[in-house]
């Protein structure tokens, strides 16, 4: 048990550091490509800063962004795995510990009393999946510059796909330069209102440099991305082609009377890390 506990502690340390200090490999690839392809001076400068920042963060063991987010945990168990109260509690405690040891920001506070910010207030989602082995933990520190632009719309079941596309485009327009473009756009379609938003968030964890395995969603993602990049918001809102670098869509069955669509935007510093702990 003690060895197990030390092992988990080590892994959570790695998870917190990886998510906070290093730009995801897939993001580095797509941001690098956007930098090379951008012709306009100011947005190119902005993309260059993002790449410089990734180097500075890694080298100095510094948070990529001072908004080290509200830490969202996804704890997933495969077949024949048990998730216990003490395991979840241990994981949460270790995240708080390594947020502190990594000098990340105390960003959580009472929503109404707004007392001195703390590390406590992690949100954890526990789920089971037949597709995975063992127990997997994903840490997704969500910054609020982009979280504040989250939107949900309950469409009619007979709504046209173009109405959904327009809704997503409007979300991006409203997010604008404030939410640190280039964006990564998570979209959840189906389920209930809460599940659509959760799905939108989960979509952001998937690699952004590989195509959706669902052909219909893949072409929808590409079409929406093309439309977003005609908005001319651009990196840091300074114009150019890179308003978003990926749209990721997930869907689950919904009720015959409804069509929930949730949109969760991430800034260019989309941070997440996943590790198997068992």
């Amino acid at each position: 048990m003690r060895k197990d506990s030390k092992d988990i502690s080590k892994k959570i340390k790695k998870l917190v550091e990886k998510a906070s200090f290093s730009l995801r490999y897939d993001l580095k690839k797509v941001i690098g490509k956007a930098f090379r392809e951008e012709k306009q001076k100011l947005p190119k400068q902005a993309l260059g800063w993002i790449l410089d920042n990734a180097k500075a963060a890694k080298k100095g063991k510094l948070a990529l962004c001072q908004d080290t987010g509200l830490p969202v945990l996804f704890i997933e168990a495969g077949k024949n795995q048990n998730i216990t109260y003490s395991l979840v509690n241990k994981i949460k405690k270790e995240v708080v510990k390594y947020y502190q040891k990594s000098y990340l920001r105390r960003s959580m506070t009472d929503p109404l009393l707004r007392k001195k910010p703390k590390y406590k207030g992690i949100i954890s989602h526990i789920q089971f999946s037949p597709k995975i082995e063992g127990i997997r933990v994903t840490l997704f520190p969500k910054g609020f510059g982009s979280e504040n632009k989250t939107q949900l719309k309950m469409f009619n079941p007979t709504a046209d796909i173009s109405q959904i596309e327009n809704f997503i485009l409007n979300c991006i327009k409203q997010a604008g330069p404030e939410s640190c473009p280039p964006f990564f756009v998570g979209v959840g379609i189906g389920g209930t209102a809460d599940q659509a938003l959760l799905l939108a968030k989960k979509a952001l964890i998937d690699r952004v440099d590989i195509a959706n395995s669902d052909e219909y969603l893949d072409s929808l993602e590409k079409r929406i991305l093309r439309k977003i990049n005609k908005l001319n918001i651009g990196a840091m809102g300074l114009g150019g082609k890179s308003t978003a670098l990926a749209v990721k869509i997930k869907k689950i069955p919904t009720h015959i009377a409804g069509l929930p669509v949730g949109v969760n935007i991430s800034c260019h510093a989309l941070r997440s890390a996943t590790l198997r702990i068992k």
Binding site: A46, W49, N53, L62, R106, P117, H268
Partner: peptide, 29 residues
Amino acid sequence: FLAPSGCGAMLSKFVLAKKLICFPELGTE
């Protein structure tokens, strides 16, 4: 002015000194 957004690690290199002025009870704020 606009500062490079989401580039906090890079920006830390341009800060020479930091001193608390008031409202320590607000933490990072």
